[in-house]
Simulated assay, not measured.
Amino acid sequence: MNNQSNYLKLKIPFATKSFIKELNKGLKIKGNAYYIFDLFKNVYVDEYLEIESANFRLTDYNMLKTKYYSKDIFKDFRKRYLDTLSNKEPENILEISYLDLNEQSLMEINNQFCKMNTTIRNMFACLSGSNPTGAKSKPENTPLICTEPNYFKYNFLNPLKFFVAKKHDKTKNYNNINIKVVDLEDFLNKYSIHHKNKFFKDEFWKYNDCNRENIENIHINFEKNDLNYSLSNLKLNEDCFKDKLFKEKNDNFELFIDGYLNKTLSKEIEWKEFKLKLRSFYKWNVSHCINNRYLSPMSTLKEFPKTIIDNAHIISFASLVETKSKDNILKAIDPYNCLRIDKNTHALFDDQSIYFDLEGNIVWLNGDKKLYLNMNLLAQKQKKYLEQIRIKKIKIN
């Protein structure tokens, strides 16, 4: 038996889009993906799925003609664990349909997944009838969405594919129970996994570009417990500029801003393009601070949200940028100039129909109040921006 300290188990909770969006149709799977890493070789030597709840696509006439059904591993799995559940002849099933798995079937399938010498993609294909997508050009196409709070919505299948061991190095010669289990947060930030001149952290962010709008547009329908919702290691009152990557990025952002304001950019850019750049800087800053817990990973709402969350400027982007003052422009891209609130409230806030006080209340123009923000989830610097809004409103009134 190999030394257990050589190994590390990466655990990634996931769900399919149909499960997250609570759709009536489609593949609805929730569970965990596990990758066993050899820390000496910086590759993973085994992988498997653990399904908590799931349905599966019935074997139908069209599936019989696919490349997956020609593979013995796929065909044998379907016949042993799935086709017997439907009691229907595949040739007679002409439309795609799904059937829920019961607890006994889930247990049997999980035991088999743990033993199988194949990839998580192939295990998923056993249930879906097709390979998980997510090409480099459209990584958001992946059907397996990470549900870890810090990295909710992110693609994990594609960046991991560069770190798989060669066939002759793959093994199940380890004690699964005794291996240290880590989540994606620790794996990204505490372990320097690199292979063939690729670092996992770099590859992860290539496939999860924080500037991609469509990664934000997945509906949140998880309860706190489902997401292992834990705020115990928030760094709300730490300075994000102590983070080396954040500082390096923002030093570059500041050089770009100086270049525009001082007209020293080698290529002239339009004001409209400059503002788009600033918005992308803001998105990167907020995303980085959320992922590294300088900002609350889920929202700043008092009640757990079941709506899409926006990253709203506290002091409006336009009012800061239009001054063309460097200090104000830096405030426009400051991640602490941000509230993570629902879209409807964001619209009212932008329209100046409401503001927030330092007790977390929404305050309407007529003076009515309603508790809305969880102030314990705000960093001190966020509260300072709120104070500026409050003082401005008092002066106006």
Rank of each mutant, 00 (worst) to 15 (best):
Tyr68Trp: 15
Asp226Asn: 05
Tyr61Ala: 01
Arg80Pro: 01
Phe256Asn: 04
Tyr151Trp: 09
Val43Asp: 04
Leu348Met: 08
Leu85Tyr: 00
Lys28Ile: 02
Asp202Met: 06
Phe56Trp: 08
Ile308Ala: 06
Gln104Ser: 11
Trp205Phe: 15
Glu148His: 14
Thr118Cys: 00
Tyr68His: 15
Met116Ser: 10
Thr345Lys: 04
Leu236Trp: 06
Leu23Lys: 15
Ala15Pro: 05
Leu276Asp: 06
Met1Ala: 11
Lys249Ile: 03
Leu10Val: 12
Asp351Thr: 10
Phe19Cys: 05
Lys244Asn: 11
Glu91Tyr: 08
Lys138Trp: 01
Ile389Cys: 11
Lys395Asp: 11
Phe124Glu: 03
Ile314Arg: 06
Lys30Ser: 07
Trp205Glu: 08
Asn111Glu: 07
Tyr229Arg: 01
Tyr260Phe: 15
Glu95Thr: 14
Asn374Gln: 00
Leu23Thr: 15
Cys210Gln: 14
Phe163Thr: 05
Trp364Ala: 07
Ile220Arg: 15
Met63Asp: 07
Tyr207His: 13
Arg279Thr: 10
Ile96Lys: 13
Asn2Cys: 09
Pro149Asp: 02
Gly129Arg: 07
Cys146Tyr: 05
Asp186Met: 12
Leu94Ala: 00
Ser53Ala: 04
Leu255Lys: 09
Asp46Gly: 10
Asn175Cys: 13
Asn122Ala: 08
Lys30His: 06
Cys289Ser: 11
Glu270Cys: 05
Ile36Trp: 10
Pro335Asp: 00
Glu238His: 14
Lys166Tyr: 11
Asp243Val: 12
Tyr229Pro: 00
